[in-house]
């Protein structure tokens, strides 16, 4: 039995007949060919597969593709605007917030959710927010620094925009 779904991914609609049991993460990787979203456990315990579903961070290994039908998903590939990196991407780059990079897309999407709701988090807030995302390489310290870096940049940009108005 297959079911037709249409999922908007990074602004592009993807339509496909899928098995009802197909996980969203497999839809992203296999159907849409977007392999930036990684699979670290498939059991919602590592956070590597985190994406935004209608703007909120979800673990895409715990969502069925059919549940995302008609909704919009943002993956790591959708963060940058053309050549312009997202402040979070810059932050991770500048603060050495990644080593092997495998957890990074999930960390970026999870922090994206944090900053959207909490633009100036403390270190403790950040550590709390990413506690469902495992990184085996960095010891998290530079990830915390990266998110703070992004938060500062975003605040500056907001105030610059306000000033320009």
């Amino acid at each position: 039995m297959q079911k037709n779904v249409t999922i908007d991914i990074n602004g592009q609609p993807h339509r496909q007949a899928v098995e009802p049991r197909l996980l969203l993460v497999h839809f992203l990787r296999e159907v849409a060919g977007l392999t930036g979203t990684h699979i670290g456990c498939e059991t919602s315990l590592c956070g590597a597969c985190t994406v935004l579903l209608d703007g909120r961070a979800v673990k895409s290994c715990t969502v069925l593709a059919v549940q995302a039908d008609g909704r919009s998903v943002t993956t790591v590939e959708g963060l940058a605007q053309g050549d312009k990196l997202h402040a979070l991407q810059e932050g991770f780059w500048e603060e050495h917030g990644l080593q092997c990079g495998f957890c990074t897309p999930g960390m970026l999407m999870c922090s994206h959710d944090l900053l959207a709701n909490h633009p100036t988090p403390t270190s403790a807030d950040i550590r709390e927010a990413i506690n469902g995302n495992v990184c085996r390489c960095t010891g998290y310290q530079n990830i915390v620094n990266a998110v703070k870096n992004a938060s500062r940049k975003m605040a500056k940009r907001v105030s610059a925009r306000a000033g320009a108005r």
Binding site: R29, T35, I39, V76, A80, Q89, F92, L98, G101
Partner: peptide
């Protein structure tokens, strides 16, 4: 800043399971 990072922070690098 690392030369590796642009591809990793944009999800455009390829780990083995990303290959088809």
């Amino acid at each position: 800043k690392r030369k590796e990072d642009p591809r990793l922070i944009q999800g455009t690098s390829h780990y083995t399971d990303d290959l088809k």
